[in-house]
Write a protein that binds this DNA or RNA. Structure first.
Lengths: 333, 333
DNA sequence: CTGAAAGCGCTAACAC
DNA sequence: GTGTTAGCGCTTTCAG
């Protein structure tokens, strides 16, 4: 007793029309008003639910886009996905989510392979890394892809934010607040975000005469915590620490707290992204805000355009960021 | 120039075998080792990628399960999804994610409808509400469904945690810490979680002689914040506040901070779920830990069982919780 | 405007 | 073991 074996043939039978006409009626094809009426009524009565799988087989369009994220536990991604889902929904699209982190070994490649077998219409990748050979191959194959949040030095549609610019603003802020030695907890090497934030900061810091100490921390909370502990326990501890994302900065905040250091008095802390927690009163993390929702919206727009016309030249969008100063750098009360 | 028009027919042609044999070779059917060898080689050379859509049409199995969440911005859900993705991945399954919150009007019904058209093999709902008519109908139709985190008073597979028990533990803890008047910021009415946590707490509180003040707060940060502000600004402010989830408790923590109240000295705060932020040193939120990963794992197991044998009687699992005391109730340093 | 017919790419009997 | 033959449920010519 299968729950829903009702097909368009059943509807056709019920209306006395042909199956083809039922299809047309349901998809806005050319049919008499009377016929459409009958089809709609019968569909409702029978509880007919179009089979998108069959539809996808013949149209070669599934209405589904694959989304690859690197670490859904980083609050930045849920915020991105929230906006992405809304943007996609507005276009009648669905989202097949793949969390590369939990994908095991080389999750990314597996994730992409799986999405392709499912015949998604396109893929949005937020997990790109320099050694993402799977992503490179995917792009090279001509399949509709857009890179969001992170980019790669290849010809592909991209939306990212002005990480270097934001980092420069951050350097200026810290300098203005009197810091002369700042520690940088760097994100995963091989990611464009870490590179842009690192270089953008270093460049402006150099101009300002800041001394910069860098340490690899990784974008995840666990690895970041270790790096933060080490940096804060050093003899010549920097007076300010900037993490390459808010998760890292938060780890630094926690490390400082447990080491008995006061923020910002003993050490100032700042991050990137402006996830919700950064704005909490009990956190007050100074950070470079990324226009997350707009980024998601643009990613969907770019992908839609690409799917419609695969011959489009690759587009690269860089969204403006905004420095949000909060208590962790002594900016506000 | 479509990127990947390679079909099993192409592979058949390349090997000189029949298309059916190619299919068998790829799916572990009965074929000679030699044939399998040739098929595998040719598939690799041609870049053949099985079309899961076509496969799904004939097998009536898509290998995809739909997941409906109520609010992906609540960190509990990403944590749940992370585990869900892993559990699903281990079984070779995929996840079609639908965020009911961003689904607009009656997002839930739309979400479910969309999933059904996609012919997912089953659906995991974490967004169930008393007036989720769509969910009730879905269950009534016999379609494989499992409710996780929240439940409904109907015959359906369910995994939830011992919310009432956890709430009782919480009442005991607060009583033990000397509180006699506690405020409860309640989650969305019509959700089993809010009801169980509310009733479990009230029952034990009554036995202990605690005075309980309740106020609707809603599970979202924004609404919770308003309720927390109101409760903390009252004349006879309670000495302890418990939120029906960590997001609410966090809102209370932030409200307290902005009102100049010290936690736990002026007011103790506690929540439910034990999201990652609760454990941060700068937060230290006492909370009832939910076995999120296990819940996800069980949800997948139950769904798999249900899909395999729809005639199974409905099962209901209640997972044990654990009270984690941290600084927000004065328990630790 | 509507029906008949041909597949989309694959699995699953059914013969050989 | 392997090939042949039917479809899965739908869209889309092509006639009429």
């Amino acid at each position: 007793m299968s729950p829903h074996p009702v097909t368009s043939v059943d509807v056709a039978r019920a209306t006395g029309l042909s199956q083809a006409t039922v299809s047309r009626a349901l998809n806005g094809g050319v049919v008499s008003a009377a016929a459409r009426e009958r089809v709609l009524a019968a569909s409702r009565d029978l509880g007919y639910r179009p089979n998108d799988v069959a539809r996808g087989l013949v149209t070669r369009r599934t209405g589904t886009v694959g989304v690859v994220v690197s670490d859904i536990l980083n609050p930045f991604y849920p915020e991105f996905l929230e906006a992405l889902g809304a943007a996609l929904g507005a276009r009648g699209g669905r989202m097949l989510l793949q969390n590369a982190a939990s994908g095991g070994a080389e999750g990314e490649a597996t994730a992409i392979e799986s999405l392709l077998r499912q015949r998604v219409d396109g893929i949005i990748v937020t997990a790109a890394t320099d050694d993402s050979s799977a992503v490179r191959e995917l792009v090279a194959s001509g399949f509709p892809v857009v890179l969001a949040h992170r980019t790669l030095p290849i010809a592909v549609d991209t939306v990212e934010s002005d990480n270097a610019g934001g980092a420069a603003l951050m350097a200026e802020l810290l300098h203005r607040r009197g810091h002369r030695t700042v520690g940088v907890l760097e994100g995963d090497p091989g990611t464009s975000t870490a590179r842009q934030r690192g270089e953008g900061f270093a460049a402006r810091a150099r101009e300002l005469g800041l001394t910069v100490q860098t340490t690899p921390a990784g974008f995840a909370a666990s690895t970041a915590r270790v790096a933060a502990d080490a940096m804060l326990s050093r003899g010549e501890r920097p007076t300010a620490i900037v993490g390459h994302n808010d998760t890292i900065a938060l780890a630094a905040l926690n490390a400082a707290r447990e080491l008995g250091l006061r923020v910002p008095r003993d050490v100032a802390v700042a991050g990137f992204d402006d996830i919700a927690a950064a704005g909490w009163a009990i956190v007050g993390l100074t950070t470079v805000r990324q226009p997350t929702a707009r980024m998601a919206q643009r990613a969907v727009d770019l992908l839609a355009g690409r799917i419609e016309d695969p011959s489009l030249p690759p587009r690269r969008e860089v969204l403006p960021v905004e420095l949000i100063e909060r208590t962790s750098t002594g900016g506000a009360a």
